[in-house]
Every structure is written in C-alpha cells, then in structure tokens.
Design a protein around this nucleic acid. Structure first.
Lengths: 250, 250
DNA sequence: CGTCTGCTTGAGACATTTCAATACGCGTGG
DNA sequence: CCACGCGTATTGAAATGTCTCAAGCAGACG
C-alpha cells in the first residue's frame, strides 16, 4: 500500500496560494531564497492536507517528498518492538519534513491536528540544494536549531523529574501563546497520550503531575483540561527546573 | 577569562598536514568540496589540541570558531542548576563542532581523550557557507545525521530500561571495533561517569547492569573493566531492545 | 440514554536512585 | 618491594519515584 498518498482534502485558500502571500514564507526553508531560487521551488511545489490523527508515513516507508509544515502540527515518533513509543519530534508551521539524501523515513510521521504541507519532490529538491546556497544554508540553520531543541529534550528525558517534565512542556506551550497578557492562556495541541509520548512518561503520571501543579497553584485548567492558564509564569519555570529562559530555542 | 584559548600542545604530524592527506578528508564537512572551495577552507584552517579531560568551552562561552574533530573524542553536556548533567552529544573523528550563525555555545564541550580539532574562523566559514553549495549541502547531510542520532538517543532516554541502555551503548562501541573477528573487542572510550551521563543513569546503575550482562554471559570484561569482549553480538542487540541493526546511523 | 473515548484517581509492584561501605588499579614515596 | 593514598568501580540495603493494573468520572455523540 502506498502509504504516502493521502486523501486530497480541501486546503482552502492555500490551494491557489502563491509564495508571496505564504504565511511561512519568511521562516521556512525558502526564507532566504532569492528570485531565481524561489521560481525553481514554486515550480516543483504542491500542497497536500491531512486530517488530525492521520498517519503521513510509517517507519520504513519510502517518502518521495520533503516539505514544510504550512498549517497545523505533526509528530515524529520512534518505537520499540514491544510497543513502547517515544515522540522524537514535534513539527509546527514552517518546520521542515523529510530528509534530502535519504529515501526511507526513520520514524513515523503523524498529523496531530489538521495539517497542510508544502511539498517538494525529493530528488529535484536535492538537486536544487547543490546549486542554491541560500536554500542550503537556511536548511543548515534550521537543522541545527532542531538539533539544539533535540538536545534540550534529551536533558529533559534523561534528568528531569516527572513534575519538571510536565512543567517544561506547559511552559513551552504557554510561550507560544497568542496573548501576552496575564493570565497566560493556551490551548493544548497535544492530548495526554501525546504529552506522555513527548515526555517519556505514562499518561497516568502526566495526569497526576498536572493535578499536582494545579493543586500547588502553579497553573489552572479550563475547557475540560484542554486549556492551561498561568498567573505566575516564573513559578512555572521554576517548576520546570531551568529558570530563566532557554527552554527551547525556536 | 577567554576560555577558548587552550594550550598549544603538540599535534605532531598534523601540524604540517595538508588536506589531501587528512584522515577525515572524505567524511568531514569538507568531503564534497571541490578545488576552489578547498582552497578557501585550507586558507582559513588551523589546528589545535587539547588533553583528555580539558574543557573546550563552557555553556554560554563565546565560540569564535567552528571545526572538525580530527583525532580523539569529545562530549557535549547540558546541565541543570542543581548539578544534574546529561550528555547530549558524543563527537568522534570527522564530526563537526560549533554552530554557524550562533556565537554562544549552548552546551559544555569537553575532551574525553586527547583531541585535535581542525578549526575555521566562524565568520569566514559562514560567508563561505553562503557561497559554496557543496560545503552547505554536506553540512546539511551531517546535521541531519546528527539529528537522527539524537532522536535514537531520545528513544533510549525516554523508554529504555537500564539494562537496554547499557547494552545499547556497548553495542554502539563494539560496532566501531577495529576488528570484526569473534570475539568482538573494544576499549571503552568512556569511563563509568561518562557512560552514566550518556545514558541518563547513575554510575551505580551502569555498574550493576554491566555486572548483570556479564553474569548473563552477554559480554565479558578485560583490562580492569575498561575493555569489553562480546562472543554473541546478537544476544547483545537483543538485550539492547532493538534487534537487527539501526542503533545509530553513522 | 447508553456508549465511547479521553482523563483522573487509587493502591501496590517494581526499577532506579540514594547513601554508605568496600574493593580495585595504579602511581608515588618511603 | 611494600605501604600508602587517590580516583574509579563495585556491591549492598533502604528510600523513593514512576509504572502497572484497575476502577471511576466527564464530556461528546449517536
């Protein structure tokens, strides 16, 4: 079964979108590209959408494309044979998907929310990569940012307590909150299962720690546990273990 | 204190080495560079050595260079304020050190063995990166490999048992063993403390698991616990949790 | 109104850590 | 050559944090 051919669901305004008005134009892999490079990219691009929960690729699948997340949120997970699963990547808009130079996906890619990708044929993209320095150097930048994020994540997985892990994740989500006003408020894009997978914990432990943080007055919940409120962000950062900023360079 | 200026210890034959005879020429960041690009790189390169145990940079230090590991082995570590430490990178010959586009080191860099780096001035390297596509695309390749390795590492930290972690690390070391013959034999480049830091465990747990693997006949030790022997590599991989290859793409 | 899915809570089991003591390898100096 | 001391590794016993298994709860939806 050709796993990588999803349903072509509506991607609304994005279908006819040209790069000039693209919401991720200035942050994605194409950010530093000039006119000629953009023309090449625009020529080979295509959009596709997936619904929340859909699998985009399984471990070992052939991925004929690379691309950028335009809208929505996807996860990368790696798993052991007995079923243990660890999330190893969380892709947000402008993040890059896929691997120039490798045809097979080393981890499962799943849409957590409804998702739209701007896709490029992998081989053509690789060719361009060897000729377009701005593209390549932007991809270097983005890969190294990802690497930094992965390394912070490793610190969390290797050394933080359950409470610190949960607080770290909540702080990460609240950082991206649309409003800066007090109290900070954000909808959780991840359910408990995905949070547990992210944090290297079980669902139950995540739930208990959220309860504990609430009991301690560090956060409040709303919307049936799907929205987090925080009156004292400093207290949350303290609970996260690493005071001061620097939880995840974006 | 300008931390990044180390002692200029002897680097022997390397001092006068030209790139053509460099031991990492075909695997390092310069692997795909052509004549003109090599000339630029050779022009800005310089060698430096550190002794085992020396600190190359602390978290937050300004790193004015990037470079490649020529000889030896270095670690990247990140730590929490209360002293907990997690290794987040293990650099072997040909691996790239530093971050084009960022001046400050986000983690501590330490020489585990005697170490020689081939260094490039960061700013000049960045400029070249925007003009030399072969350099940039090789760096993309290497960064993405590192990212894959970091993600396998995250699976280990998030989901593997202590026994699996130790077995995974031993398998990783034995894979690089000079001899392919049975029994596999390798000297551990890392002491127990560094192993514990790598694995997200305590020294005691590492020690106990090594003892357990020995008791179970999966490995043998020699040279005062500094050399590992393995008669049955398949058994070691089973103990590592992920059968079949694929522990760390190199 | 019942069922489903996702979240919470509880009690006991278990793995790893912590703290403490002991052993080993090895260079140094008597 | 042995005694000493130091850093590193091993082992033990108790403490603790997280997981496992099991039950209960809330909201969404047919």
């Amino acid at each position: 079964m050709t796993r990588y051919i999803p349903n072509f669901t509506a991607f609304g305004a994005l279908a006819s979108q040209d790069c000039a008005s693209c919401p991720i134009r200035h942050r994605a892999v194409c950010a530093k590209c000039d006119g000629a490079e953009m023309d090449h990219l625009a020529d080979m691009k295509s959009y596709r959408s997936w619904e929340a929960g859909e699998t985009i690729a399984l471990e070992g699948d052939v991925l004929p494309f690379v691309g950028s997340v335009v809208q929505g949120c996807a996860t990368l997970t790696r798993s052991l044979e007995d079923g243990r699963v660890q999330m190893v990547g969380l892709l947000m808009p402008s993040d890059f998907v896929g691997r120039p130079g490798r045809t097979v996906a080393p981890y499962e890619v799943t849409a957590v929310t409804d998702l739209t990708l701007c896709m490029f044929d992998r081989e053509r993209f690789e060719t361009l990569l060897n000729e377009a320095p701005h593209l390549a150097s932007r991809l270097v930048e983005m890969s190294l940012d990802e690497l930094d994020a992965a390394r912070d994540w490793m610190l969390l997985l290797g050394r933080k307590t359950a409470r610190e892990r949960v607080a770290t994740l909540l702080a990460l989500v609240l950082r991206r909150a649309p409003t800066d006003a007090n109290p900070l408020r954000a909808d959780l894009p991840l359910g408990r299962e995905a949070m547990a997978s992210y944090l290297g914990l079980t669902i139950e432990t995540v739930s208990r720690q959220i309860t504990a943080l609430r009991r301690d007055g560090v956060i409040r919940l709303d919307g049936g546990g799907r929205t987090v409120l925080c009156d004292d962000f400093a207290a949350l950062l303290t609970a996260a273990g690493d005071d001061e900023d620097g939880i995840m360079p974006s």
